[in-house]
Every structure is written in structure tokens, then in C-alpha cells.
Design a protein around this nucleic acid. Structure first.
Lengths: 359, 359
DNA sequence: CTGAAAGCGCTTACAG
DNA sequence: CTGAAAGCGCTTACAG
């Protein structure tokens, strides 16, 4: 063994008396419950109780133990704890390999970030689990049976994805982001996409727009179909035509593309509701190229209320989703299941319309 | 405890004789070494050896054990193993919370995907560790001391990021993607960005372009400065002007923006080297808007060789990086350190120019 | 409220 | 080549 140690503490065998004199490699091994117990003059059990916040410890003793913990910089060994509690203290974000683009979508990135914050506050780790198209089932099942994670988050699902079924059957706690499109019933959190879309369209009607178009999301994703439904419902209620529809995949370039198509087919349109801010940003670009003023000639409303909505010219009116609350709810719902509580019901969080300059 | 169990196996206390007759909840607990040993008629130690691929087991016994493992669907308990080996079997991808955009960059997404594949082949898990600006140090240090992960990957670093220093001092095995810009010496893998850029520019010179511009990346990122250096070096060697420079942040819209600026300042340019494919895609868009034909009027070369390079019109000539090899190397370098081998030297992988229609 | 003791499922010298 | 045994660091009934 040459060179740097790499930081992995060796199993410090007490073994035959140390041959080399001089100082030990200072604190080569991390403090354990045992160490802390000795330092505090109590039993391991008591230290364990303090560390785990058990109420049945006298304040006096608690203080002494806490001081010892702090002095020694004690951090519980996760593996040991896990071995007895049968919990790993980590949950997985399962994404199909093809879907690595999970992270390409800024909304999902924001969700993951917020989930990470909520999770770390509860001291649970987020494990990234990629599933490949081919040997999915076996590897995933193996992981789950191996008890590597306590629960699973599922995001950005398309219709026909086998993951929900696999996870459902495996019995692990699962929470999905977005209402499941298939027949598998799993707990989920979502916003009322239909309502959100209606809010946006209602506003466009209210400001007097007559020929309202939409750039919808993919028809195999719930956010795609629900927002389109909301668009249609609202226009129907207003007795207005709802046939100005183009589709995108939530990306900026697809939005630009779609806007171009709409402009070609319906040059007289005076408003467009976009199912994502990114698509709205693309639409803005196309409109500018065609020298339509926003909002004077064409009013634009987006969906998501991402940072980008503030950066466009003009800033986007958009449907805002409570990202932090959604993330926190997903975390709560998963950890509740992990704790053995009954299956939570789906949570539908509210949306609101944020008015800025674009419409 | 009501309702569904949630999939966490209870600690099956053998306790006082089962009061309830009838069949046990089928295989309520996963098989252990013990179970397998009994099934195979050998000791736990032997099963352990087989499972861990120890060579000192007779072929005969090995076969019997493997059969038992398969029959029972045995998967080792990670916590128990970890407790004795002092390894967790997981490594972290540490990203600063602000930098969640790690995932917004398709190159990084591709890297993470490839790393995931390489990692899972070695049966190690990827943990996402977010560090918040404020209490960074303590939380991170706590995690590392808690032995939650065996090593750390660092990606997408900007100058001035305190993470490398923190990690270096903590002694955990680390591998960085991209050459460190600061003074902290950590193992890393990178491509020769200067050389890659020179290849691209050399090609543009070779096909007779006279007024070559570049859209460079951010000056606080190594891929930004190195590719710009390569651009300058090559033009210097060819005794050509190297002042047509605009900057972007690797994103498509920044590329479009930058191209517009270049066109305004240097309307006579006849080629542009872009430090990322995304920026090149943006540039293409701007050029189209200004009715410059590509490559007739302006030749365009990108960098990265991502999927997008094939989707643009025309398809992009670009500098290709060996993403899979980079990911595999990063994994190798980290796991080598985890195994206690000496600090690996940096790995610089080769780039090559891929010629398509854009230049 | 506190402690002694058992046990979680594994790996690894140590004998044979 | 194989097994008996110790031990990794924790939690949790069980007594007191």
C-alpha cells in the first residue's frame, strides 16, 4: 500500500501490541457509541436514546451526552443503524436511462432540488437509480429486494412505461410526480392542470382576445393532455373556437416551431396559451421574428413560472405551480409510507395565475 | 399500525411460539446467508466466499451454492456487509444547490448517464448530494465523516467554488470532471480542450475560411478558457486575425445571442467555431434569420458531438469527446482510490473532429 | 429513567 | 478448500 490512504479508515485491528512507538495516527477511527458512552459516563443504550431523540432520558443526562457527542464529533454509523432498523435512510429517484432528460427539464430540476432540500432536512439521502430498457426488471427488483432504498420517487412518466407496475408489484413505497396515466394506482402529487389552464385562458378571454391558440404538451404525458383539456373546456364555456392547436414537447425549440406553425395556419390569432414557459419563450421568439408585438398583437401566457419567465422580453404571464410545496409533499408522502403509515391519498396542489407583461 | 405495510419488513422476532396457525406470510423476510447456507448444506462463510467471488472454493461447492442463491433469489444485505467492510458501496455526485443546472447541460446529463451505467456494473450506487451555499461545510463534512459514501464526483465547477478544497481536506476519494482551475490538486479526467479547438479551427482554415470567429464559453470555466485558447493559438499559427470573439454560457439561446452580436460587429465573417453544440445550434438559428447560408456563406463547427449535432439543419461538424470513456475513467479512478490504491494521475482523453454538413 | 444483553447479516482471520 | 467464531456499531425489548 503506497501513497495516500484515500480516506477509508482501515479496520483498526487492535492486534499484537503496537510495535511502532510514537503517537497513533490521530483519531484514525471515527468515534462510536461506545466512545461517547465512555466519555459521558453512561451506557451505550442511553447515548443511543439521546442521539435518536427519545423522550425518556433525564434532561441532566441528555445534556451530558450531547456535550460528549459534540466534543467527539460523533456521527452515527449508518450501516450499523440500518442493519437493526431495517431502514437504509435513503430513497431512490428512479429514472429510465432513456429518460435522463428528466434533468433537462428545468421544472424537474427545480423539483429535484427542492426534494433534496426537504430530504436532507430529514437526513435521508437521494439515490439516483437508472434503469435500462433491457434488463430493467431484474436489476431493479434486485435492488429493491436488497433493501438498498426505503422508497422510490417516479417522475416524468410517459404512457406505457412499465416502471409503475414493477414498483407497485414490488411493494416498495412509491410516490409519483403527476397523476398516473395508466391503470396502476400509486400515490402521487400533482397540480390541477386543467384548472391552471382554464385560469390562463379565462384571463385571455377577459382581456378581450377573440382567436386564442394553444401550444400543447405531448399527448402521452398527463401535463400535456390536462392542460389542453383545460384550454378546450374554458373556450367552450366562453363559446369560442378551440381549434388553434399545435403540439410541442415542452422544450423551447419545439415551442418556436409550434408557434411558427400556428402563425402559418392561423395568421389572425391574437393570443396563445403555452403549456410550458420554455415553449412560451420559443413562441415569443417566433412572434418577434414575424414582427408581432407582444402583448399588443398577440398575448402570450406560459405555464410553470420558472426563472425563464422573468428573463423573456416581455416577461411572461404564467401559471405558477407551488414547486416547493409539491416537493415537500412528495417527500412527506413517501416518508409516511416508509414509516409504515397507510397509503396516502393523492395530493392536488393549487395553481395561480401570475400576470406580467406578456398577456 | 393500520393499512398497508409499506414494504418495510418488520424485524421478525422469532419470539414466543407462533400463536396463529396457518401459513406464514410467504417469505416475509428476505433470504440471508444463513438461509442459503442451509439450503446448500454448507457454512455461511462458504456462501459468503462464493457470493464475493473468492477463488478458494471448489468448483463443486461453488455450483451448489450458486444454485441455492438463484433458487432463493438471495441478495446480500448491504448494511451488514458495509458494517464489516467499512465500505458503503455508494459514491456521491456532489453538486452545489445553485448548480442543479448540472443536469440542464446535456453533456453533463450524458456523463451522468454513462457514469451510472459503469457504476451499476460494479454494483455501486450513485447518491445525489446537494450542498447549499450557506451551511455547506458542516453538512458535507458530517456526511463524509458519517461514512455515508466511499467517494465523491465533482462536476461543472466554476472558479472560486470552495468544494474542491473542502473535499480535498476531508480526505475522501474524489475525482473531478475537468481540470481544476484553482490551486487544489485533485485527480481529474478531461479532454484536451485546447487541442480539440485547434482541430476545429485548423479545419476551417484548411477549407479556405479567412475571417473566423468564435463563440466561447464562460471565462470562469476551464472548457471556456481552454477552447478559446485553442482558437487563438491555431489562428496565430496560421497568421490570421483572432479578434472575432463573443461569449456564451454553453446554452443554445446564449449562442444565438452571441452569433447576433458577431454578425453585427463582423458582418464579413465566413466561419464560426462554437465551444458547444448547443451554442452552435443557436448560432445556426441566428444565421438563418440573417439569411446566411451554412456552410456556403458561413461555416460552423461545434463542440461536444451531442445528439443535437445530428438534429440541426444542416447537421453540425463538431469536436467529438469520448463521453463513455471519460465516464468509465472517472469511475475507475474513483474506485481505485476507494480500494486504497495510490492517487491516480489526471487522465486527458483524445478528441476528434467529426465532419458533417455545417462546415 | 437507565443498563446489560441479544441480535441485525455479513466478512474474515484462524484452525484444520 | 471449509467451518466455527468473533466482531463490525447500532437499537430495543426486558428488567430494574
Amino acid at each position: 500500500m503506497t501513497g495516500k490512504d484515500g480516506g477509508i479508515p482501515k479496520a483498526v485491528a487492535p492486534g499484537p501490541e503496537a510495535v511502532v512507538p510514537g503517537p497513533e495516527p490521530a483519531s484514525a477511527s471515527a468515534p462510536t457509541l461506545e466512545t461517547v458512552a465512555a466519555e459521558a459516563g453512561v451506557s451505550r443504550a442511553t447515548v443511543s436514546r439521546v442521539v435518536n431523540g427519545s423522550p425518556k432520558v433525564s434532561d441532566e443526562v441528555r445534556a451530558v451526552v450531547q456535550a460528549a457527542v459534540a466534543r467527539l464529533g460523533y456521527v452515527p454509523n449508518r450501516a450499523a443503524r440500518s442493519l437493526v432498523t431495517r431502514r437504509t435512510g435513503s430513497v431512490a429517484l428512479v429514472v429510465s436511462e432513456a429518460e435522463m432528460k428528466v434533468f433537462t427539464d428545468p421544472l424537474l430540476a427545480a423539483m429535484v432540488r427542492s426534494m433534496g432540500v426537504a430530504l436532507s432536512a430529514r437526513d435521508v439521502q437521494l439515490v439516483l437509480m437508472m434503469v435500462r430498457a433491457d434488463n430493467e426488471r431484474q436489476r431493479l427488483t434486485g435492488y429493491l429486494l436488497g433493501g438498498h432504498v426505503d422508497g422510490v420517487f417516479l417522475m416524468s412518466l410517459h404512457e406505457g412505461d412499465p416502471l409503475p407496475r414493477i414498483l407497485h408489484d414490488s411493494g416498495v413505497p412509491v410516490v409519483q410526480m403527476a397523476r398516473p396515466l395508466g391503470d396502476v394506482k400509486l400515490p402521487y402529487v400533482d397540480v390541477d392542470n386543467v384548472h391552471g389552464a382554464r385560469l390562463a385562458v379565462r384571463h385571455l378571454v377577459a382581456i378581450g382576445r377573440q382567436r386564442i391558440a394553444t401550444i400543447a404538451g405531448p399527448p402521452d404525458m398527463v401535463a400535456g393532455v390536462d392542460r389542453l383539456d383545460g384550454f378546450r373546456e374554458e373556450l367552450l364555456g366562453a363559446r369560442m373556437a378551440d381549434h388553434r392547436v399545435a403540439f410541442g414537447d415542452f422544450s423551447q425549440s419545439s415551442g418556436e416551431q409550434a408557434m411558427l406553425a400556428l402563425l402559418a395556419d392561423h395568421p389572425d390569432l391574437d393570443a396563445v396559451f403555452c403549456a410550458s414557459d420554455l415553449m412560451a419563450a420559443g413562441a415569443l421568439r417566433a412572434l418577434r421574428r414575424h414582427e408581432r408585438r407582444v402583448p399588443e398583437d398577440v398575448a402570450v401566457v406560459g405555464y410553470d413560472d420558472l426563472d425563464v419567465a422573468l428573463l423573456t422580453e416581455p416577461p411572461l404571464s404564467t401559471v405558477s405551480q407551488p414547486v416547493e410545496a409539491m416537493a415537500a409533499t412528495m417527500v412527506d408522502m413517501l416518508l409516511a409510507q416508509v414509516a409504515g403509515r397507510p397509503l396516502p391519498s393523492p395530493a392536488i396542489l393549487p395553481t395561480r395565475l401570475v400576470l406580467r407583461a406578456s398577456g
